[in-house]
Simulated scan of single mutants.
Amino acid sequence: MKKWFAMFVVALMATMVLSACGEADGETGGSSSADGDDYEKVTIRLAYNLPQDHHVAVGIENFAKEIKEKSGGNVNIQVYPAGQLLSDKDMNQSILSGGVEMGVNSSTLWASTVPAMGIFDVPYVFNDYSAVGEAVNGEFGDKLRGAMEEKGAKVLMFADYGYVQFANNKRQLKSPEDFKGLKIRSIGDLPSELIQAYGASPVFMGGGEVYMALQRNTVDGATSGTTAMLQRKYEEVTKYLTINNYAYLEFLLAVNKDFYDKLPEKTQKLIEEVAADTEKWIREQAEKEDAESAKALEEKGMDVYVVPQEDLEEWIEAAAPVRDVFVKNAGELGQELLDMVDKK
């Protein structure tokens, strides 16, 4: 009996020691599952309109997955991809009104709410990939984030889509003169101004409508990134691709600010840390995807023309009126952002 009692005491003491060790681990970080138990349960809806295999979409899907895993399933981001919940035209208002908590949409479409976001559509502002990353992670990006928050949306991530080009059915666009008489699908106000400056007629439509419009000759061409052109099979409905890197398109992962401000600080910190890592990954993919998708379109039969560096000045001069329109729309902040970029 005494032997049994002694064994019981030893077992009890061992259990207490293990329990204390577990508690200590929890205080110093412990396992991810233990940490996850500390997060308040919340479900966050996130919508986007890009094809699911686009590199921005892949990054966003991984962002949601990682947050769920690191929170032990307590912070559940429900993703609605490829326009299942909202079109790109309806996305921003839904975020601002709280109809959806999070959404991914282009800086071009956000420019109708925050005109300074049109900076990414001002032709030939960013001449390389690294310049964009430096800008959005510095004072330039802070000013844009502040302008968005004033409207009720917090920017969690600048997701690099890549450079924007022109595709069409009529002829190779070797100079701005070649645009005359064409109807070109536009993605927003400033791209429409550029299309007009080059002598063509802009036709605004969402990404999902373009293939049919090109197939039916409703438009002669379209402006988009080569990644989306490839995924939306532009090679089946257009012949010519002109690469002139006229604009660098950003997509924003934005969240309703009132909703976000009510989340626990720990949840906010997790979301922001994962967003920062995801933003870096997406930026690394953009240059690679641009090059690979342009090559793939050429291999699939498109006639690809890369505007020589020495000819770009003609394109830049013809696009000059677009800068004036941007400053008129975006005011003092717009001019300030242009000055910051021009000094680089």
Score class of each variant (00 low, 15 high):
Ala319Arg: 02
Glu66Met: 04
Leu144Glu: 08
Ala167Gln: 12
Ala153Phe: 01
Asp38Ile: 14
Glu287Tyr: 10
Tyr198Ser: 05
Ala135Tyr: 08
Lys344Met: 14
Tyr161Gln: 15
Asp88Lys: 07
Ala197Lys: 08
Gly146Arg: 11
Glu177Phe: 02
Ser107Gln: 10
Ile316Trp: 02
Leu252Ser: 06
Lys295Phe: 02
Phe140Gln: 03
Glu332Val: 10
Ala131Pro: 03
Phe140Ser: 01
Val125Cys: 04
Asp339Trp: 00
Asp311Thr: 10
Ala296Cys: 06
Leu86Glu: 03
Asp189Pro: 10
Ser106Pro: 00
Ala291Tyr: 10
Leu253Ala: 00
Ala131Arg: 05
Ala228Thr: 14
Ser107Met: 08
Glu139Asp: 12
Tyr260Thr: 01
Glu235Ile: 03
Tyr129Ala: 01
Ala213Glu: 02
Pro51Glu: 08
Ala213Gly: 05
Phe5Val: 15
Val327Glu: 05
Leu214Tyr: 03
Tyr124Asp: 07
Thr226Ser: 01
Val341Ala: 14
His55Ile: 03
Ala11Met: 14
Val274Thr: 10
Val164Thr: 12
Glu336Leu: 11
Val203Met: 09
Gln309Gly: 13
Thr218Val: 14
Thr242Lys: 06
Lys295Trp: 10
Phe120Cys: 11
Val17Ile: 13
Gly118Glu: 06
Asp37Trp: 12
Ala291Gln: 14
Pro264Phe: 06
Glu209Trp: 13
Thr267Asn: 00
Arg323Thr: 13
Glu40Cys: 05
Glu149Trp: 08
Lys174Cys: 12
Val219Cys: 07
Pro176Trp: 04
Glu209Cys: 04
Arg45Ala: 11
Lys174Gln: 15
Leu337Glu: 04
Ser201Glu: 15
Phe8Asn: 15
Lys239Gln: 04
Tyr248Trp: 02
Thr267Arg: 07
Asp121Ile: 10
Lys280Trp: 04
Asn217Asp: 11
Glu235Arg: 11
Val306Arg: 14
Asp303Thr: 03
Gly72Arg: 05
Asn169Leu: 09
Glu209Gln: 14
Phe251Leu: 08
Pro115Ile: 06
Lys233Ala: 11
Arg145Asn: 12
Lys89Ile: 07
Ala6Gln: 15
Val100Glu: 05
Ser186Gln: 05
Gly98Ser: 03
Lys262Ser: 10
Asp121Phe: 03
Ala14Trp: 09
Gly225Thr: 03
Glu272Pro: 02
Lys65Ser: 06
Ser107Asp: 12
Gly30Ala: 00
Phe179Asp: 05
Tyr163His: 09
Phe158Asn: 06
Val136Trp: 00
Lys262Val: 08
Phe63Leu: 11
Phe158Ser: 00
